[in-house]
Design a protein around this nucleic acid. Sequence first.
DNA 1: CAAAATCCATTGGTATACACACAAGTTTTT
DNA 2: AAAAACTTGTGTGTATACCAATGGATTTTG
Lengths: 149, 149
Amino acid sequence: MTSETPKLTPSAAADAYALDDQVGFLMRRANQRHLSIFADAISDLTPTQFAALAKLCELGAVSQNALGRATAMDGATIKGVVDRLRAKDLVASSPDPTDQRRILLKPTAQGWDLFEAVAPAAHQITRDTLAPLNEAEQTIFLLLLQKLT
Amino acid sequence: MTSETPKLTPSAAADAYALDDQVGFLMRRANQRHLSIFADAISDLTPTQFAALAKLCELGAVSQNALGRATAMDGATIKGVVDRLRAKDLVASSPDPTDQRRILLKPTAQGWDLFEAVAPAAHQITRDTLAPLNEAEQTIFLLLLQKLT
DNA sequence: CAAAATCCATTGGTATACACACAAGTTTTT
DNA sequence: AAAAACTTGTGTGTATACCAATGGATTTTG
């Protein structure tokens, strides 16, 4: 690969790589800032746990894997998240009578209460995260983000 | 906050929360896609390890904590990353004669070679990640991302 | 119907990522 | 110079996050 640009010395190729301008690095930092805003606003749940709880409140009763797909987490990840939500009595599980492989998940009354209590804060977190952008920029940013999904 | 919208019942507030439209969720998914592209293109290093190695090649000899700051990783995180880079003989450490607390880090010859070998692939990863956007959109996206940092 | 393919939940392993506490070294204050 | 404040590296604990493998259940195929 380096041999394809014979005029550039290897060091020049290296110099040309500015970490701070790479999408990956910028996305990581933007996400760090968002996670920090989240942690400051909601201490009862992690962002991931809140996402799972919110999706479960939206979907009703679904299997663990289905919840994982809906929240973009793989099987191993969603299991840990659900375990922690169950430990906090926010989610209840029961065997699916239709399919013996599945575990049906549902928010508990406490889970519903917590979700409704923190939902406004969650909206505020979205606003705070986007605060450095004006309204037009926010719209564009969300649109472009969606294209990158 | 909730009291500012008294006409909405809690359930309505809950219904109004669409996880799939939240910045945090979109950024997480966009990042997942990027990490997948990275893993497909570069198997020798993780994105984090590559970032640390690239920054070290850019900066020369710096302490572990300084490298962590330059790559946006906290002390505990950068330690693990550097440990793994040292285990692969990509980075060497020596005591700082100026400050007995510090460990000076430097890329090994092998570290330089690997960085120069994969740097073109890293550029390609950035291009692939942004590929769903046209050129104008890419510029805007990077600009807005930078504002969110 | 039987075999193959798929799906589900779980487990083990590796790698971020951050909070917190700690000890030793360095700088700043007083 | 002595005290206070800070920095550096390390260790512990918790929480994502994903891969690969596994055993049991279900669906699809032949």
